[in-house]
Amino acid sequence: MQDQQLNDWRTHALTLESEVNKVVVGQENPVRLITTAVFARGHVLLEGDVGVGKTTLLRAFTRGIGGGYQRIEGTIDLMPNDLVYHTYLGEDGKPHVSPGPLLMSGQDLSIFFFNEINRARPQVHSLMLRVMAERTLTAFNKEHYFPHMLVFADRNQVEREETFDIPSAARDRFMMEIPIVVPPAHDIMESLIFDTRFHDVDQLISNVPADILKFDQLNSFAKVIQENIQASPALRKYALDLWLATKDPVAYGVKVSNVDMKRLVLSGASPRGMGMLLRAARVNAWLNNRQAVVPEDIHAVFHETIAHRLVFSPVYEMRRTEIARELLTGIVNAVAAP
């Protein structure tokens, strides 16, 4: 029974991927990673320049998954209550209170997109991180639940002024940080410029069939995936070695160019991070029609689930993206399995 369920859902998931790839071209790997995060039920940080299609991508997924999509822009004057409600004077001249982005879709909230989260103040981060962790919010003397919500947040990595960097403890709550870059293929770039179907985002999104997945069944099905995709003792040992290597890369002979390895890593991956890595790896194995996780499943999500959790010496923070990629590649190359 569960095998049939797994097969059916895999078909739906691949259909969703296929449809999204038709709308957002040249982003096959981010699409696969977002699909993985959706079925692993993990929040996602998006990394990328402006105008590369992050919003379009998320809206396309929301249409395919179903449920509500909400979005908020991070600004320096954004306050926590702006996420919950906003007030205005109505036509009757009386003050009115309307639900904010978090409450607007109620329990059907499926995807919440926090654009440029690092422009918001730490108070806002605090509220957002609590909602991410507990999927509940207390407002208007009532407990609001968001059982199906996934948060996608975007960080503005270019501008540093008037930004509040997300601390490592907060970054650790995101399952993945997915880079979204302009596709390098020239034909795709040309298509993005000249193909008129990309000019009208609403029209473009409508091309994705609605409700390919049932958003309100994702939680229970995610549990089925985690329970049915096996991890052998050899794989457990491999994952453990990877974890230890993130903590002490020198012991595994990992080197990064122009970096003093003894001073580089202040903190490796967290237990939560490694747990999320294995959750994502299981989903990847399922998407590839396997009944057990293999090292390649871990590799498929290793950079995206671990890189943003590593804490480097401040002197290396400016080169974080480059160093983290080289470090994690070195770890994958150094740690053998079996």
């Binding site: 096996q230 052998s232 396997r290 009944q291 057990a292 996780v293 079996p338």
Partner: peptide, 9 residues
């Protein structure tokens, strides 16, 4: 290797 160590299927 995969059959022996990771996925018997």
């Amino acid at each position: 290797s995969r059959q022996i160590f990771f996925d018997s299927h």
